[in-house]
Design a protein around this nucleic acid. Structure first.
Lengths: 110, 110
DNA sequence: AGGATCGTCAACCAGATGGTTGAATATAGG
DNA sequence: CCTATATTCAACCATCTGGTTGACGATCCT
């Protein structure tokens, strides 16, 4: 379920990282202060929700954002929001603000 | 947290009901096959997430949708969705489709 | 005042969730 | 082939979640 997947700050942080670029599982895990297995589980949940896709190349699994699921859920939510068109700047603000999942998630500093 | 609040099908069903009109707690609970106390908890979570507001008039507490929180979260999600403007019809389809929370939630039939 | 209705609170319970560790699988490379 | 790397799997654990029931406070009505 998309919303359950988004409910966890670690997973939102992962999505934010993948917004920058596709990443290998190990690299996704690197900034977090938790085990690789935990991150692997999170990636499984994100994948199950359709929010990311995983593609194996050699022994490395590449993760990339799958924006459709988010768009879909966003449509649902906008149904309640009375459809004022959304502006890009607001998103930038959130990424630098308290809504920022990176701050909430237990990221290693450095 | 908005996304945790949205993660539960009962709560999404409640939001869909409130989209129609403001409702008293008892009336919100009526179609569900669970106790009033359970619904009261759900309303507390929705309220905590800023998704609804509750106003006491006499002994009745009226619940109404608070679309700002949804708009806010929707903005965040659209940040990942590459910002194609969203159309209203899509929302209508969801309400009649598998994304419909009313079907997922344990609603009494009739 | 007294009874019925509206809603929440508190205690409790089963199952889901998010984390851990250690073993297992698959691939790359010397 | 052998070892190191990349990732998942399985078992386990603590905490959160969503439900229950029964008691309670507040309000309306007669």
């Amino acid at each position: 379920m998309v919303f359950s997947a988004l409910a966890d700050p670690t997973r939102r942080a992962i999505l934010a990282m993948l917004l920058e670029d596709d990443m290998a599982v190990t690299d996704v895990a690197e900034p977090f202060e938790m085990s690789l297995a935990a991150i692997s589980k999170h990636l499984g949940i994100l994948s199950e929700a359709g929010l990311i896709a995983r593609e194996k190349r050699g022994r490395v699994i590449w993760c990339k954002l799958e924006p459709d699921a988010l768009r879909t859920a966003s449509v649902w939510m906008q149904g309640f929001g009375q459809f004022e068109p959304v502006d890009l700047d607001a998103f930038e603000r959130f990424l630098a603000d308290e809504f920022n999942p990176i701050d909430e998630a237990g990221l290693a500093t450095g």
